[in-house]
Amino acid sequence: MKTHITTTVNGEPEEFLCETEQTLLDILRDELNLTGSKEGCSSGDCGACSIILNGRLVCACLVLAVEAEGQKIETIEGMADGEELHPLQKNFLKDAALQCGICTPGFLIAAKALLEKNLNPTEKEVRYWLAGNLCRCTGYDKIIRSVLNTAEEMRRK
């Protein structure tokens, strides 16, 4: 039997039906068509499905969809404000902080969560905060630089 769930996704009320064994990632991708959150491992090891759940950074693959009742969900699709990209999104483009782009939504969400907590992180803090987001293309260099650049830019504002 499916369960009826009411949540908020990117500020909008959202309802769906789900089986108990379905993860929140399954529902975001397959039912709500929010395919920006990616499935790289289904075990919480790659971070490609990073979302913000009630203000906390989590892997959507490690949350059951039934747990989302009454919760607030933020995904990559809600990161830009209308046509205005988030400073991290702009800088990822400027700094070439992506190659294939599959890990990019996860990195952006995770980095956003970091900068909301700490706008003056050290390189080491950024690296450890993002250690759960795997990237196989970049060697992380340009991603880390872009997050640091964005933090600096946001501090100046």
Binding site: D30, T35, I76, E77, L85, Q89, F92, A96, P105, L108
Partner: peptide, 23 residues
């Protein structure tokens, strides 16, 4: 030059369709 890639915005907004995103 270091021009911004043409497919960039799609990839930072989650809009780009990868293999498993197609139905």
């Amino acid at each position: 030059t270091r021009a911004v890639r043409p497919d960039g915005v799609e990839k930072v907004t989650g809009r780009a369709k990868f293999g498993a995103d197609f139905s």
